[in-house]
Design a protein around this nucleic acid. Structure first.
Length: 485
RNA sequence: UCCGCAGUAGCUCAAUGGCAGAGCAUUCGGCUGUUAACCGAAGGGUUGUAGGUUCGAGUCCUACCUGCGGAGCCA
């Protein structure tokens, strides 16, 4: 009886060779499998990530040719399958002439099913190599039109134009795996604390905050609709229905921002908690980020090394534990004044203004973990933020700045809970009152203090992976000048 | 929207205003332990577009296009 954690053969009892044939789909494959069915049964399917569990055994790997080196009558094909890479060893004397010649002529990224024996080897980066017995070419890439992305350096334009192929490279695959873990850990954090996921609409009738530019479209006879830039206003409603809620989905900004921190389409996870104040929110934010980092470190040490090329990032992430430093706007301003006096930043920070990107970078560089900057001047913040009872010119809000200059990854606040104040704010911000009638209702029928934040997934991934640009954090990035592929 | 940088072989980049080059990729040949392997050879060019200056422009000037980085705004 076969057994293997990720082998479909092993998971189905008493699978006979003729049944394997049914899973294959070309005449060529069918004949080959019939001839080698016994071999394949003895060489269970494995993922490359788990190949070490099969040391000394014959296995089958389904994947692609990642690289090919040769030394006379010895070939070194490297295979990848989406979980990792492994180098095959093919001495001419050890395989049939057909297998040797097939592999020797194969172009990179041709799809292949390989059988071979797993052998531990100190020379291999992963510790294992595959002594190849047989290879079946699923589809051969043409030498007339070789795979465009080589192991050498490429420019961002070239790579983004071929994003559908670029993501096959080990580094890009690793980033996407870490992204998936971050998204799963983020949901897991809220799910295990009795939050209810309530996703807001993506098509909205008006601006949530009224400031940023929105993507606009016709909506039948109802006039214009807009792609959401935040689900916050809606989840305030669901929070008052369900207590603790979160939303998780794509959001859209039509801003003409061209920086390493901006996409026009990005994913945001937003919790909203009834009866929570700003201090509750900051505790939630630090526990949330610490949980995400813990999960990434549990699963992705090898991926982080692939992505960053070293162990530095793992060491830095190990520091990311609650509590995070808390710095008031006034304290942050004082830090910046001192920094300017010492020549550490180029421009002085004007008291009362929001922080610019260089200011945020300086502040975050003073700490070894994310820093929570709270109580900004109300004048530079959104209309729905609750004023600080101790200083009405300040808002009960918090920005969480990631280390190493990755900027704001979380923005949150306690929300205005007074009907009269909220109505006054809507009017003074020049927003159309009729669009916010439903939102004001939340302050009319059982209003409570409540707080929430939003975290941009892409900035979080960029920070945790140590990336130059958020365009690498999402399978298909949407930026100002690019909507292909 | 504003500021700055760039555009030369499939890719990454060279080329004082004076013969269009290299590495990688591709093809052919060599090598039994290579790790972005290495060694030899071949093929591969409307120098982003349109004008202009000049005996002569990849190089200088003007406009435009495309991309990149940043500011503002934001996550």
């Amino acid at each position: 009886m076969l057994s293997c954690s990720d082998c479909r053969l092993g998971s189905t009892p008493a699978l006979r060779p003729t049944q394997i044939v049914v899973q294959m789909n070309t005449r060529h494959t069918l004949l080959l499998v019939m001839a080698t069915a016994e071999t394949i049964l003895e060489a269970p399917l494995t993922s490359i990530a788990n190949i070490g569990q099969h040391e000394g055994q014959a296995v089958t790997v389904r994947g692609w040719l990642y690289n090919l080196r040769s030394s006379g009558k010895l070939l070194f094909p490297t295979f990848r399958d989406g979980t990792g890479t492994i180098q095959g060893i093919v001495p001419k004397a050890a395989v049939s002439p057909e297998v040797f010649e097939t592999l020797k002529a194969l172009q990179l990224e041709s799809s292949v099913v390989v059988t071979g024996r797993v052998r531990a080897d100190q020379r291999a980066p992963s510790g294992f190599e595959l002594d190849v017995d047989d290879v079946h070419v699923q589809q051969a890439v043409s030498a007339d039109d070789p795979f465009p992305i080589t192991l050498k350096e490429h420019g961002p334009d070239f790579l983004m134009e071929r994003r559908h192929l670029w993501m096959r490279t080990p580094r890009q695959s690793a980033i996407l795996r870490v992204r998936a873990t971050i998204m799963r850990a983020a949901q897991e954090f809220f799910d295990t604390q009795d939050f209810t996921r309530t996703d807001p609409p993506i098509l909205t009738p008006a601006a949530c905050e009224g400031t940023s530019e929105l993507f606009e479209m016709k909506y039948f006879d109802e006039g214009n609709a807009y792609l959401t830039q935040s689900g916050q206003l809606y989840i305030e409603a669901t929070a008052l229905a369900l207590g603790k809620v979160y939303s998780f989905g794509p959001t859209f900004r039509a801003e003409k921002s061209k920086t390493r921190r901006h996409l026009t389409e990005f994913w945001m996870i937003e919790p909203e908690v009834a009866y929570a104040d700003l201090d509750d929110l900051m505790r939630l934010a630090e526990d949330f980020l610490a949980h995400i980092v813990t999960r990434v470190l549990e699963k992705h040490r090898i991926d982080l090394k692939t992505i960053t090329g070293g162990d530095d990032k793992v060491a830095k992430l190990a520091n990311i534990q609650a509590p995070f430093p808390r710095v008031s706007y006034d304290e942050a301003h004082a830090m910046l004044e001192k920094a300017f006096a010492e020549g550490a930043i180029e421009k002085p920070h004007e008291y009362g203004d929001d922080f610019g990107a260089p200011d945020e970078t300086y502040i975050s560089n003073q700490f070894d973990r994310p820093v929570m900057v709270h109580r900004y001047p109300a004048a530079v913040k959104a209309f729905y933020m609750q004023p600080d009872p101790e200083d009405a010119t300040k808002a009960l809000c918090v920005d969480v700045l990631a280390p190493e200059g990755y900027g704001e990854i979380i923005g949150g606040s306690q929300r205005v809970d007074s009907y009269d104040l909220l109505k006054e704010r809507i009017l003074s911000h020049g927003l159309p009152l009729e669009s916010f009638e439903w939102y004001l209702d939340l302050r009319k029928y059982g209003s409570v203090p409540h707080s929430g934040f939003g975290m941009g997934i892409e900035r979080c991934v960029a920070w945790i992976c140590g990336l130059e640009h958020v365009r690498e954090t999402i399978p298909f990035a949407r930026t100002l000048n690019r909507i292909y592929p």
